[in-house]
């Protein structure tokens, strides 16, 4: 029995990503990695972060009834990250919004 058979052979794997596909897009892995690095270096704990993640998910679920946006777990993750960084004063003023707006206005294909 090989690992491949195990992964493909599970009759109850609902969507197809069964363990091996952890992130669906590169930005999701970066968002995860930034949080993991901040936890590793002691800026906050996973439990601290969890509070913000729950808040972001609740906020999405409240908005969801008005049909605003489709579910995206890592969008909630990024929102949680922004909020905890602001509350810990690791992001100050509007520097983050300014940077995001700047990146959004860059021509396509121009990436760092």
């Amino acid at each position: 029995m090989t690992d491949i058979e195990v992964l493909d052979g599970s009759p109850a794997a609902p969507p197809r990503d069964n363990g091996e596909l952890v992130f669906e897009a590169p930005w999701q892995s970066r968002a995860f990695g930034v949080a993991a690095d901040l936890v590793d270096s002691g800026h906050f704990t996973w439990n601290d972060f969890r509070e913000y993640l729950i808040e972001a998910i609740v906020e999405w679920e409240t908005l969801e009834s008005s049909g605003q946006q489709s579910w995206d777990y890592y969008s909630c993750w990024v929102t949680a990250l922004e909020q905890i960084l602001k509350s810990r004063e690791l992001l100050e003023g509007d520097e983050f919004e300014t940077r995001a707006t700047h990146y959004a206005s860059r021509p396509h294909g121009h990436d760092h």
Binding site: A25, W27, Q28, R30, A31, V34, D37, L38, S41, H43, D72, Y74, S75, V78, L81, E82, L85, L90, L91, E95, F96, E97, R99, A100, T101, H102, Y103, A104, D111, H112
Partner: peptide, 22 residues
């Protein structure tokens, strides 16, 4: 779109790298 999570993640990572936090 500045609201896109992809843009926001890139902005977040770059800012924190520049500050030496990550």
């Amino acid at each position: 779109n500045a609201d896109s999570s992809e843009i926001r993640t890139a902005a977040l990572e770059d800012l924190l790298v520049e500050k030496g936090i990550v």
